[in-house]
């Protein structure tokens, strides 16, 4: 079996094992770990766009919100009609419904990604950043105005289907998909597009298509992460997905050293844990956070975890 597949199976087994930990985990720890897992999904998927393909998207939270809303809608409105009261259903049914909700959320987000990506991906650099930011904000305003999805108040009483196993399993799948996609002859096209679009086209690659694929795949996983988030927090509001959330994810990617998979995962862990550690200094922690961001760019622009790397295997 190819190595990535072995790694994926091991990770899935470990994810399953975590929930069946003897005695269970401390609830606070469980909370933090779930947050880490969701952030890993978001950061690793965005890394495909911002890191490997070199496009600057500031709209990841927008896609996350699409997934969060649509998957919650499935759980709240669609599922009861199909299988009756969820809490009364068996464990397998519940799992199947949740999986369906997550995938629906992911697909809707991917669709939104396609809709946003096709027109805007011919823009470069900071222009693309702004358009994606703009789309993210538009998505937010739309959700604020859709009554059936709770309007400005958002949705609540979402079933708490998200477990650590789900989160870690999805995180493992995300890492696997992004890794396999990039680590192939086909995947060299993402990197080529990042390095020089004109040269990429001149060797027969279609940079636009690569950018759209990266964008849609990333949006899909952001949507799934949104679904996990919604079924973890149990209530969601449009303002929870504004562009500061997008920036947080971008910072993870940059801190990890754009396009460095391990670094991005470490950065996602670090940036989820950091606010927890800094809790004692409460209000000053965000100042510290932004200061660190500026200092990082000044002192270590290649990212915190980007060391002279091994070449990826051919």
């Amino acid at each position: 079996m190819p190595r990535p597949h072995v790694a994926l199976l091991l990770a899935l087994a470990a994810a399953y094992g975590v929930s069946h930990f003897p005695g269970g985990l401390d609830p606070y720890l469980l909370d933090v770990l779930t947050g880490i897992g969701i952030n890993i999904i978001l950061a690793v998927s965005l890394n495909l766009v911002n890191g490997y393909t070199g496009q600057f998207s500031l709209g990841h939270a927008g896609f996350m919100s699409v997934g969060a809303y649509l998957s919650s809608a499935v759980s709240l409105f669609v599922a009861p009609k199909l299988v009756g009261e969820l809490s009364a259903a068996g464990e397998v049914t519940q799992g199947a419904v949740f999986l369906a909700a997550l995938i629906t959320g992911g697909f809707c987000a991917a669709l939104a990604g396609l809709f946003v990506g096709v027109p805007s991906l011919r823009l470069r650099g900071d222009y693309l950043a702004l358009v994606t930011l703009g789309f993210g904000e538009i998505i937010r305003v739309i959700f604020q105005n859709v009554e059936i999805l709770g309007g400005a108040l958002g949705l609540n009483a979402i079933p708490g289907s998200t477990t650590l196993t789900w989160v870690l399993a999805v995180a493992a799948v995300t890492v696997f998909v992004v890794h396999c996609l990039v680590d192939s002859t086909y995947g060299r096209g993402f990197l080529a597009t990042r390095d020089d679009e004109i040269a990429a086209a001149a060797v027969g690659l279609n940079p636009t298509r690569y950018k759209i694929v990266a964008f849609v795949v990333a949006a899909f996983f952001a949507g799934v992460a949104g679904g996990l988030y919604a079924h973890f927090k149990l209530t969601i509001t449009p303002t929870g997905f504004d562009f500061t959330r997008s920036i947080e994810i971008v910072v993870m990617v940059i801190l990890g050293g754009m396009g460095n998979a391990v670094g991005v995962i470490l950065a996602a862990v670090l940036l989820t844990v950091l606010p927890e550690v800094l809790r004692p200094i409460a209000e000053y922690r965000m100042i510290l956070y932004s200061l660190l961001l500026v200092l990082l760019m000044l002192l270590r622009p290649q990212g915190l975890f980007n060391f002279p790397a091994r070449r990826p295997r051919g």
Binding site: N50, F56, G125, D126, A129, T244, I247, V250, V251, I254, M258, M286, I287, Y289, S290, L291, L293, V294, M297, L298, P301
Partner: peptide
Amino acid sequence: LNVLITAIGVSLL
């Protein structure tokens, strides 16, 4: 991108 992120950092600060 680095300059843009720095600007965002200053903004947040």
